[in-house]
Simulated scan of single mutants.
Amino acid sequence: MSLVVEGLSAKRGEDLIFNDISFVLTAGEALVVTGANGSGKSTLLRVLAGLLAAESGTVRVSGSTAEIGHAREACHYLGHRNAMKRELTVAENLSFWKSFMGDSAGGTGTGIEEATEALGLGGISHLPFGYLSAGQQRRMAMAKLLVSFRPIWLLDEPTAALDANADRLFAGLVKRHLGSGGIAVAATHQPLSVEARELRMTGFTGVGEGVW
């Protein structure tokens, strides 16, 4: 399986944020997207996830052994916000996402308790999400990546609010995902602690472009 990006461009309002970005990631590969604030890192991930329309270019999944339609059907998107209801328990939040997302063709997600254990927070899934610390909330949001299967993870500043131990734990999850044939694209200012290619966004420099 490959994530194929060809000639991708995107605008914010009337401004061209980046232009003519192309890359191919195959099973087991990761890409770290770097650049200054406002250079288009988050915009790129949202376009890959199908949350924003591209100005030009294509995003597709190629060579999958399972039938996948639009590329977004193969993607998990973890943005700046945790996308969890504070009033619901952790288990209720994850149950919603497990049911809503379902599994992409080619794999099966984990159970809710197994996912929380994997993030080092077993035994507290009965608590309201709003009771958790910022770091715990971020880790619980990461459990969404596990409860429903998607071969491509799109991660926007995934380790924000995490301490060093949680950072290492998350790096281990990403490594296991890549080791099982998954693909990861992460926009981050911090090292992802996994072997990865790099795409540097130049942003507002006439026409923004990606630089390898």
Rank of each mutant, 00 (worst) to 15 (best):
S2E: 15
S2C: 09
V5L: 01
G7M: 05
L8Y: 00
S9P: 12
D15L: 12
L16T: 14
F23D: 11
G35Q: 04
A36C: 06
R46M: 13
G57Y: 04
G57K: 07
R60L: 10
V61F: 09
T65M: 04
G69Q: 15
R72K: 13
C75A: 14
N82P: 06
N82S: 12
A83G: 07
L88T: 10
T89Q: 08
T89A: 11
V90D: 04
F96D: 11
S99C: 10
D103Q: 09
G107W: 13
E114K: 00
L119C: 07
G120K: 02
L121S: 10
G122S: 12
I124F: 13
I124V: 15
H126Y: 10
L132W: 10
G135F: 03
Q136K: 05
Q137F: 14
R139P: 01
A143Q: 09
K144V: 05
L145V: 07
V147G: 04
V147A: 02
F149S: 07
D156R: 15
L162D: 03
G172D: 06
L173W: 02
H177S: 08
L178N: 07
I183L: 03
T188I: 04
H189N: 11
P191W: 05
L192Y: 05
E195N: 13
R200V: 11
M201A: 06
V207I: 09
G210I: 07
